[in-house]
């Protein structure tokens, strides 16, 4: 009997705990480890302070292609251009294209945002999609903002309808004469 009780004592954490009120219900036991626990090595430091890699690279690309933030503000939802405005896009080789904005595609976490402009040459409708952050672009300027806008943000419906654009440059010249 004596040896049994001695064994029981040895298995318990400490004699002081044995008489504690928490152990009054039953005697707590534990299984001793057969071998040493393995060492766990510390992980390598987190990259980018845990930032999402796509938003991280997007930030870098914006700094590269739009350091002043001018292009970003151009397609800002509240203060930027909207469908109906007339813009002129100048390329690095000084060639340019003028047209009326009929749609703006805004990309999330990507520099793929672009503006669709429409014009008419010899009564033939021409549409050009302008990649906003393309390094080939030199400048984008707003030539005209109408007093009254048509409905919808994407105005594909104006094609070949009574709302369709005319020769945009000629219209602007006429209006400036007035």
């Amino acid at each position: 009997m004596l040896s049994l009780s001695a064994k029981g004592l040895a298995r318990c954490p400490s004699p002081a705990k044995l008489f504690s009120p928490f152990l009054a219900v039953g005697v707590r036991t534990f299984i001793p480890l057969k071998s040493k626990l393995p060492t766990v090595y510390e992980p390598l430091p987190k990259k980018r302070n845990g930032e999402n890699p796509v938003s991280y690279i997007h930030r870098q690309l914006l700094e590269k292609y739009d350091p002043t933030g001018k292009r970003r503000s151009l397609i800002d939802q509240s203060n930027g251009i909207r469908s109906g405005d007339v813009i002129r896009v100048t390329y690095n080789d000084r060639s340019n294209v003028v047209g009326q904005v009929i749609a703006i595609k805004r990309c999330v976490n990507s520099v793929g945002s672009n503006i669709l402009i429409r014009n008419k040459f010899n009564k033939l409708g021409i549409e050009v999609r302008i990649p906003l952050f393309n390094p080939k672009l030199r400048n984008i300027e707003v030539l005209h903002k109408p007093k009254k806008y048509l409905s919808r943000r994407k105005q594909f419906y104006i094609r070949n309808s009574k709302h369709d654009v005319g020769d945009v440059e000629a219209t602007l010249r006429r209006e400036s004469k007035k």
């Binding site: 890699p53 990507s110 520099v111 390094p135 080939k136």
Partner: peptide, 26 residues
Amino acid sequence: KRGMITWFTEKGEQLAATVIEIDNCE
């Protein structure tokens, strides 16, 4: 794989590109 983005080459060509994260590869 983390998603796809637009990539511009130095000539100004627009490409589709995929972002791949290399996360503590040992």
